[in-house]
Amino acid sequence: MNLTMIATSLCEKIRTKGIELGERTSHLPLSFRLGENQWVVVFRFGVVATVGLNEKERQDVFSELNPFMENPHAVQKSEDISIEIGEGLDEVGSEQAKIPSLSRERVLVVADILAKSVMLERYEAVMSEVFSEAEPLAERLMTGLRGKVSSKELKKTIGATLLVQQNMIGRVEVHEKPEVLWEHPELEKFFVRLEDEYEIKERNDALEKKLRLINTTAETQLGLLHNSHSLRVEWYIVILIVFEILLTLYEMFLKPHFS
């Protein structure tokens, strides 16, 4: 038997309390069995994985989840994997997983990897845009040019990187293994092979390096901007002091001669 699991990034966050789609099989992540070989796994960071559902059934599930979504994405991103069910051991191939049964624990393991992969894809797209904006800043620093960059733009760039970092650490928890592995340690090798196939660690490390680079570049430029403003204020103060001294000298020595 061949089935397809699809993970779709729907929104920034899903409130899982109150969601009822079928027979609940786990709480973290929230998962439901809808029928024979039909599953839905809901992740709080806005991703929903389905297996054994046709497109209409998937859209019906999304409609039921709509009231629980925060900040829905205008453009949804999806990733899928072909699941072959048959006798033998758990195996992982290119965009395919072979498993002996579509058990709850195997559904949760595959869904975890697919959900992380689709979220990394979203973050990679976001950071690609931010990186393209930060690149000119790095060029200015390299050439010694300051250019006209507002602190508002720099703070926006820093804010974007911090938001992605917060989501990666606080919501997605890319480095964390799914809780189901504590109950079924025999599936850890299967999980690791899936993780390697989708290059989860490598993509996450590359994204973190890019985040650090963008953040450092923006903070450096912002520091230079503040220093420039401080220097300008100091010159204003010096000019005012000199003007006040000249005015005092005028009052003391020159004004009496004109009186």
Rank of each mutant, 00 (worst) to 15 (best):
N54E: 13
S101W: 15
E199S: 12
Q165V: 00
F62L: 07
S94Q: 06
T143P: 01
K148F: 11
M142D: 13
I6C: 06
P29R: 01
I113A: 03
G170Y: 01
M5D: 08
E95I: 03
L145M: 10
E79T: 15
F253Y: 07
E179Q: 10
I169T: 14
I14R: 12
S31A: 15
V92M: 10
I99L: 11
M168N: 08
R106L: 02
G86L: 05
K17C: 01
E87K: 09
L21V: 05
L53D: 03
V149D: 01
S151V: 11
P256W: 02
L102N: 12
A74T: 12
L207C: 12
N37F: 00
G52I: 02
T50K: 03
V51E: 07
I200S: 08
K210V: 13
A49W: 03
A7T: 02
V107S: 00
N227Q: 12
F258S: 02
G46R: 01
I81H: 14
F43G: 02
E12K: 11
L34A: 02
N2W: 08
E197F: 08
R193I: 05
D80K: 14
P67A: 12
S94F: 03
E219M: 15
A138D: 03
A97N: 09
E91S: 10
R44N: 11
S82C: 07
G52M: 03
T217C: 05
E179G: 14
E105W: 04
Q96I: 14
L28C: 10
